[in-house]
Amino acid sequence: MKNNRYRNAIGLPVLTAVLILCGAVLLAALSVVVNKNRITALAEQQRQVEQEMKLLNFEIVSLGRKVDLLLDGARVQPILQSKGTWLQKLSPDARAIIHLKPIPTAKAVVQSAEAELP
């Protein structure tokens, strides 16, 4: 009778070590793929937010232009004058829009205070 014996040099400890090593490599590869997918998803979200910001900025600028057209001085001035406001046309030659009384200097204040004392 022929005796068939299994004579492979790879034993159970070596086979277990190889399986553990392959499992570790597969887990590392899987984690790299998951991280890249997560980064790609975050980049896509950021692109969408930036695109929305551009659209909103464009809308803000266009609304600003519309407001400027609607609130033109030629249209607003008659409305305000009819309401009895103190609106006056600005002279292009005017150097200042608001005229303030001059503040007395310290010397003038002291002189006026001395003149008032008996």
Rank of each mutant, 00 (worst) to 15 (best):
residue 1 M to Y: 07
residue 2 K to R: 10
residue 3 N to K: 07
residue 6 Y to L: 04
residue 9 A to T: 05
residue 9 A to I: 10
residue 13 P to F: 04
residue 14 V to W: 00
residue 14 V to H: 05
residue 16 T to A: 10
residue 20 I to F: 13
residue 22 C to W: 09
residue 22 C to S: 13
residue 25 V to D: 10
residue 28 A to Y: 06
residue 29 A to P: 00
residue 30 L to F: 11
residue 36 K to F: 09
residue 41 A to R: 13
residue 42 L to C: 02
residue 43 A to L: 11
residue 43 A to W: 03
residue 44 E to H: 11
residue 44 E to P: 00
residue 45 Q to K: 13
residue 46 Q to S: 14
residue 47 R to F: 07
residue 48 Q to F: 04
residue 49 V to W: 07
residue 49 V to G: 05
residue 52 E to V: 07
residue 52 E to R: 14
residue 53 M to Q: 15
residue 55 L to D: 12
residue 56 L to S: 10
residue 57 N to H: 05
residue 59 E to T: 07
residue 60 I to D: 02
residue 61 V to L: 06
residue 61 V to G: 01
residue 62 S to N: 10
residue 64 G to Q: 06
residue 64 G to C: 00
residue 66 K to V: 01
residue 71 L to E: 09
residue 72 D to A: 14
residue 75 R to V: 09
residue 81 Q to D: 05
residue 83 K to H: 06
residue 84 G to H: 04
residue 84 G to N: 02
residue 86 W to I: 05
residue 88 Q to L: 02
residue 89 K to W: 02
residue 91 S to N: 15
residue 96 A to G: 09
residue 99 H to L: 14
residue 100 L to K: 12
residue 101 K to L: 10
residue 102 P to W: 00
residue 104 P to H: 05
residue 108 A to P: 01
residue 112 S to C: 08
residue 114 E to G: 06
residue 116 E to P: 00
residue 117 L to N: 13
residue 118 P to K: 08
